[in-house]
Computed example of a mutant assay.
Amino acid sequence: MPKCDHCGAHVSEQFVRVFADENGDVRACVSCSANAGIAEVARQRAREAGA
């Protein structure tokens, strides 16, 4: 079952296909970021993690 790597919330396979990075990591989801900013938050968290 896929989950957000930041908060641990469940995400759908479709969400993973759309928002995961090239490694399949989901760094932001609707539970831990604003709906309109998921992609931006994910990129920011990836930069902060050094990925």
Rank of each mutant, 00 (worst) to 15 (best):
M1R: 14
P2A: 04
P2S: 07
P2C: 05
P2V: 01
P2D: 01
K3I: 03
K3M: 08
K3W: 08
K3S: 14
K3F: 13
K3G: 14
K3T: 11
C4M: 04
C4Q: 07
C4Y: 05
C4S: 05
D5A: 14
D5M: 06
D5F: 05
H6L: 06
H6S: 15
C7Q: 12
C7R: 08
G8W: 11
G8D: 09
A9H: 05
A9N: 05
A9I: 01
A9D: 08
H10V: 12
H10K: 14
H10R: 14
V11I: 14
V11N: 08
V11H: 07
V11E: 06
S12I: 05
E13W: 13
E13A: 15
E13Y: 14
Q14R: 13
Q14N: 12
Q14A: 15
Q14H: 15
V16Y: 09
R17M: 07
R17F: 06
R17S: 10
R17A: 09
R17K: 15
R17N: 06
V18C: 07
V18N: 12
V18H: 13
V18I: 15
F19L: 05
F19Q: 08
F19P: 03
A20E: 13
A20R: 12
A20Q: 12
A20Y: 10
D21Q: 04
D21E: 10
E22K: 13
E22A: 15
E22H: 15
E22T: 15
E22W: 07
N23Y: 12
N23T: 10
N23K: 15
N23C: 04
N23F: 09
G24Y: 11
G24P: 12
G24S: 10
G24L: 11
D25Y: 02
V26G: 04
R27L: 13
R27V: 03
R27E: 01
R27W: 13
R27N: 03
A28M: 03
A28L: 02
A28T: 00
A28Y: 01
C29T: 00
C29H: 04
C29M: 03
C29N: 03
V30M: 08
V30R: 08
V30A: 11
S31I: 11
S31M: 15
C32P: 07
C32L: 11
S33F: 06
A34R: 04
A34Q: 09
N35Y: 01
N35Q: 09
N35T: 04
N35S: 07
N35D: 09
A36P: 03
A36W: 04
G37P: 00
G37D: 09
G37E: 10
I38R: 02
I38V: 15
A39Q: 12
A39S: 11
A39E: 14
E40Y: 08
V41M: 09
A42K: 00
A42R: 02
A42W: 00
A42S: 09
A42M: 04
A42D: 02
R43M: 01
Q44M: 03
Q44L: 12
R45I: 06
R45W: 09
R45V: 05
R45E: 08
A46D: 04
A46L: 13
R47A: 12
R47E: 08
E48R: 08
E48I: 01
E48L: 13
A49P: 10
A49S: 14
A49L: 10
G50E: 02
G50S: 04
G50Q: 06
A51G: 12
A51M: 03
A51Q: 12
A51H: 10
A51I: 10
